[in-house]
């Protein structure tokens, strides 16, 4: 009998878990039938499972239903924080070239259209680093540009960042506890909003919380090794679709490996080592040589000379 109760309880909670994962509200009512029908399950267990179901569904929906417009506003504020931290390298020719190259690379990604388009910005820092905020604001430092010998390598850096965008890694870095708080608060706010009013202070607090998670993931903690590998693997696929040699990703990582020896911050802090990253992407690449082209090299050199050579 004891065994039967255990199996009954286990079955019931497995059923609840499956409902959470599937988000299938139609079958939720099946749980109401469980007491007296499943051994060892009473009304308290049903309420507990239903409460878990509600929170679980909200968390799944939160990340999946956040609109590109919402991502854009979170991303703009995160971008402002990054600009405020590093400073912008303002050079119109370099910025235009970076935006032309980046927009071209993005066209061949799995997320070519975002709410307000892709925007690429050079940060005035010797630190080797690059960031992609939600809403597709992509940053590369002068230190990172110095690791790129040509357009091919820079395309690889941008493709890695675009892969973070297409996987919504920054949005997924928002803590689940944050989403729980957001939904609990918004549940009670719904009536006020329905009446035409908005609690800007409460929404502002939530916005700051979300922003805090995103900027911490981008600047301080970085993503997990798995997410970085995912961005590298997809980055290689994107540059290949554009028509660039995927070997450019390895070439850039090799320069970075040398440079990071004397500059351990930035990428070194928030990314796996270039050596490990090379190990991940090298098996994907058939030709080890980069096919360069004089027209591409000329436009890269002309636009990036200043940014790559200046020191702050």
């Amino acid at each position: 009998m004891k065994n039967s109760i255990g199996i009954g309880l286990l079955s019931f909670f497995l059923m609840a878990a499956m409902l959470v994962i599937s988000g299938c509200s139609v079958l939720e009512s099946a749980m109401d039938m469980a007491p007296g029908f499943i051994p060892g399950v009473d009304k308290k267990d049903v309420d507990m499972a239903k409460s878990g179901l509600a929170v679980g569904q909200q968390l799944v929906e939160a990340v999946d239903t956040i609109t590109p417009e919402q991502e854009y506003y979170i991303g703009r504020a995160a971008a402002a924080t990054i600009i405020n931290t590093y400073g912008v390298y303002e050079d119109d020719a370099a910025t235009l070239y970076l935006n032309e190259l980046g927009s071209t690379v993005a066209e061949f990604s799995d997320m070519p259209e975002v709410y307000s388009g892709y925007h690429f910005i050079i940060l005035d820092s010797d630190e080797i680093n690059a960031f992609a905020t939600p809403g597709a604001f992509i940053f590369v430092t002068r230190g990172m540009l110095a690791c790129c010998d040509g357009e091919e390598e820079l395309a690889a850096v941008l493709a890695h960042e675009i892969a973070h965008i297409q996987n919504r890694h920054a949005i997924r870095s928002i803590k689940s506890s944050r989403w729980t708080k957001v939904f609990t608060k918004l549940g009670s706010e719904a009536a006020k909003q329905a009446a035409g009013g908005r609690d800007l202070a409460a929404l502002g607090d939530m916005f700051e919380g979300v922003l805090d998670d995103v900027t911490k993931a981008l600047i301080v903690n970085g993503y997990s090794r798995d997410l970085e590998e995912e961005a590298d693997v997809q980055g290689v696929a994107i540059v290949e679709r554009c028509g660039y040699s995927p070997a450019a990703m390895v070439a850039m990582l090799k320069v970075m490996e040398k440079s990071l020896g004397s500059n351990g911050g930035g990428f070194g802090k928030t990314h796996p080592s270039p050596e490990d990253r090379i190990e991940t992407v090298e098996p994907m690449i058939s030709a080890n040589r980069i096919t360069r082209n004089s027209a591409r090299q000329s436009r890269f050199d002309a636009a990036m000379r200043g940014a790559r050579n200046s020191r702050s």
């Binding site: 909200q58 239903t65 609109t67 417009e69 504020a77 957001v182 918004l186 329905a194 035409g196 502002g204």
Partner: peptide, 28 residues
Amino acid sequence: TGASAAMAKADDVALAGKGFDKEIEDAY
């Protein structure tokens, strides 16, 4: 606003056009 908004789910109201938008950015 009003009845049509009242019928919307809380998460729709919050995250699909009534959540983080220009007004929130301006306040920030």
